[in-house]
Design a binder for these strands. Structure first.
Length: 117
DNA sequence: AGCTTGACTTTGA
DNA sequence: GTCAAAGCCAAGC
C-alpha cells in the first residue's frame, strides 16, 4: 500500500511509514504526521502506536518525541522494553533520552519523496 | 451528537 | 535556555 493512499485508514498509513524506518534510526511523531499530510495530528500518531500493539512488524520503538525522549516506553510490554530494543540496534540511551539524537534521526518526508517518485 | 483523553508540538512569556 | 498554556484531531465512551 502506498503511503500517499488517502483512502487507507489513518492507523494503516502510520504503520506504513513506521515500517520504513531503518534499523538503528529513529524519528519523531511530528515528522510522521507531516508525511501523512496532517502536521497537526502528531498526537494521533502516538495514538496509532497504541493500536500498533500486536502488529509485530511495526517498530514502534523507533518513534520518539521531538526531543528524542522515550515518552512511550511505559506503553510497551515492559517499561524497559523500548530502551532495550533501541540499544540492541546500536542506539545509546541515558535517562530515557536518546544520545546524539540528531545523528540517529531519520527524516520521514525525505524518504517519502523517494517513495513517491 | 457531545465530551474526554492523549506514545505531541508550537508558541508566548 | 526554561516553563506553562493552548491547539490539534481521531477514537472511545
Amino acid at each position: 500500500m502506498k503511503i500517499s493512499d488517502q483512502h487507507a485508514d489513518f492507523f494503516e498509513r502510520v504503520y506504513e511509514i513506521v515500517r520504513l524506518i531503518p534499523k538503528g534510526r529513529v524519528t519523531n511523531y511530528g515528522s510522521i504526521a507531516i508525511a501523512l499530510g496532517t502536521p497537526k495530528s502528531s498526537r494521533m500518531v502516538g495514538w496509532a502506536m497504541n493500536a500498533a500493539h500486536g502488529k509485530h512488524d511495526v517498530p514502534a520503538h523507533r518513534v520518539v518525541n521531538r526531543n528524542g525522549m522515550l515518552t512511550g516506553k511505559m506503553h510497551f510490554a515492559t517499561p524497559t522494553k523500548m530502551q532495550e530494543l533501541l540499544e540492541a540496534e546500536g542506539i545509546i540511551i541515558v535517562d530515557d533520552q536518546i544520545q546524539h539524537f540528531s545523528s540517529h534521526f531519520w527524516d520521514v518526508t525525505e524518504n517519502l519523496l523517494n517513495d513517491l517518485s
